[in-house]
């Protein structure tokens, strides 16, 4: 029981880490400071986007049952901020099927995937780093794909050494999927022709199960 509690606490801390990544926050502030002199409009936009993103992060308390469209919206704010930071070094494209928007997912489930795409992509991709986010539903199956140019960085080992990070981004995603959608999901990462693909599939859903899923 105690162990379960501590696991739940760990998961919650992990969530917080994703929601309020200080590294992302401070880098965004840094860009805004530089933009104030150069392009006030952009600086204002960036503050709006950052606020929206932070509000979403702080508000998503019930994180077991969130319509995908809310998640996507938060991701769009996130990318809008990153795009202003990295300028022509980052290209982001979307292919979101509107029907997929109501599919219930775990909050901040996809976020670590897009964060990784930026983090590792910036290190391994020729510039510009190109990220493509795809979501569709077909016969009760939700498919999400995050694809970025660059190489798959095997294990979080390097990350741990370089940045003293906990490096458990994907592990955390896997754990949450297993808890919430046991035997009903597929999670795959592969590299093909200079691109990293992270694919996530969730098959059918029953409301009740979502209630208990964390």
């Amino acid at each position: 029981m105690e162990k379960a509690n501590s696991l739940a606490q760990d998961a919650q801390l992990q969530m917080l880490r994703y929601q309020l990544n200080p590294h992302f926050l401070f880098n965004s502030m840094n860009s805004i400071r530089a933009l104030i002199d150069e392009d006030e409009t952009k600086a204002r936009e960036m503050i709006t986007e950052l606020s929206e993103f932070l509000r979403y992060s702080l508000d998503s308390k019930d994180y077991s049952n969130v319509p995908l469209k809310n998640e996507i919206e938060a991701i769009q704010h996130y990318f809008a901020i990153q795009k202003k930071r990295y300028e022509d070094k980052l290209e982001v494209t979307y292919d979101i099927n509107p029907q997929a928007g109501d599919y219930p997912v775990l909050s901040f489930l996809i976020h670590p995937l897009v964060e990784n795409a930026v983090k590792y992509g910036m290190r391994t991709s020729p510039m510009p780093l190109t990220i493509h986010l795809k979501a569709k539903t077909s016969e009760g199956v939700l498919t999400i794909e995050v694809c970025n140019t660059g190489k798959w960085v095997e294990s979080a080992q390097q990350e741990k050494q370089m940045y003293a990070s906990t490096g458990t981004g994907l592990d955390n995603v896997r754990r949450r999927l297993e808890n919430a959608f046991p035997y009903r999901h597929r999670f795959e990462v592969f590299e093909k022709e200079g691109k990293v693909h992270v694919q996530l599939e969730i098959r059918g859903y029953a409301g009740e199960e979502h209630e208990k899923a964390v």
């Binding site: 200080p22 590294h23 401070f26 502030m29 840094n30 400071r33 050494q161 940045y163 003293a164 990070s165």
Partner: peptide, 23 residues
């Protein structure tokens, strides 16, 4: 860097100083 100063200190010794963003 925007990383925590101590995280950086841990693996680097020949730097003159460490500044955190925004500086």
């Amino acid at each position: 860097t925007a990383y925590d100063e101590y995280a950086i200190r841990a693996f680097e010794v020949n730097a003159l100083d460490y500044l955190l963003k925004p500086v």
